[in-house]
Amino acid sequence: MLFHTRKWVKPEDLNPNGTLFGGKLLAWIDEELALFSIIQLENTRIVTKHMSEINFRSSARQGDIIEIGIDAVKFGNTSITLKCEVRNIMTREVIITVDSITMVALGDDGKPKGHGKIKLEKLDDRFRKIENKD
């Protein structure tokens, strides 16, 4: 699993119980999934189509640092299916897991568009290809 993003839990991220608000965490996850998909599919028009069951396993408190991990499960014609895990770096506990998230690439007309990708591509590899062409 690739962990790219870290978030610092601040007072405005808390619910009345003094723990990380689930809606805030889901917004962070959705944004990270979109960014990951945009980079992988090389298309800025990405939408979240489906999220499987969301399993909250623990929480985080103010001052904790969490990190969001994403992994590609499969590539469809117009979509990418991902899985996600968020962990608390301070407590070393898994906060949430989502086993299946489908992100869809869209064309300028707002309809699903083929992306031609078949596997995960590291950015370093993509940049090396560009450098080797020059």
Rank of each mutant, 00 (worst) to 15 (best):
P112Y: 01
A105D: 06
K74V: 04
K117N: 09
N43K: 07
R45I: 13
R92H: 14
E93M: 06
D13W: 12
I130W: 04
E32D: 10
G22M: 03
E121S: 07
W28Y: 09
S79K: 00
K117S: 08
H4G: 11
G114Q: 06
T78C: 04
I96E: 02
M103E: 12
E53H: 07
E32V: 11
I66K: 00
I101A: 07
V104W: 02
T81I: 10
L41Q: 11
P16Q: 03
R57L: 15
K83M: 12
K111A: 03
D71A: 10
I29D: 04
K133P: 00
K74Q: 14
E53C: 11
D125W: 10
N132I: 02
F36N: 11
E53M: 14
K49D: 09
L25M: 00
V73P: 12
D71R: 04
M103H: 12
N15G: 03
E31R: 13
A60L: 11
E93I: 05
V98N: 03
S37A: 06
G107L: 12
T97W: 03
L82M: 05
S100P: 12
A27D: 15
I130T: 04
R6C: 09
E131F: 15
N15S: 13
L106G: 08
N88W: 13
P112E: 05
K122L: 15
T5K: 15
E85I: 10
V9T: 08
I46N: 07
K122A: 15
M90D: 15
K113F: 14
A27W: 03
I46T: 05
A105C: 07
W8K: 12
L106S: 09
H50Q: 04
L106A: 10
V94N: 01
I96W: 08
H115E: 08
T102C: 06
T102Y: 00
G23R: 01
E131T: 12
I101H: 05
L106V: 11
E121C: 03
T48W: 09
A72V: 14
E93P: 08
V86L: 09
N55K: 15
E12S: 04
E32H: 08
G107H: 09
F36I: 07
K49Q: 15
I118P: 05
M103S: 00
F36R: 07
A60V: 13
Q62R: 06
D134E: 14
R57D: 06
D13M: 13
D108I: 13
I39T: 14
L41V: 01
H115Q: 11
I46L: 09
K7P: 00
M51Y: 13
D109T: 07
G107M: 08
L35W: 09
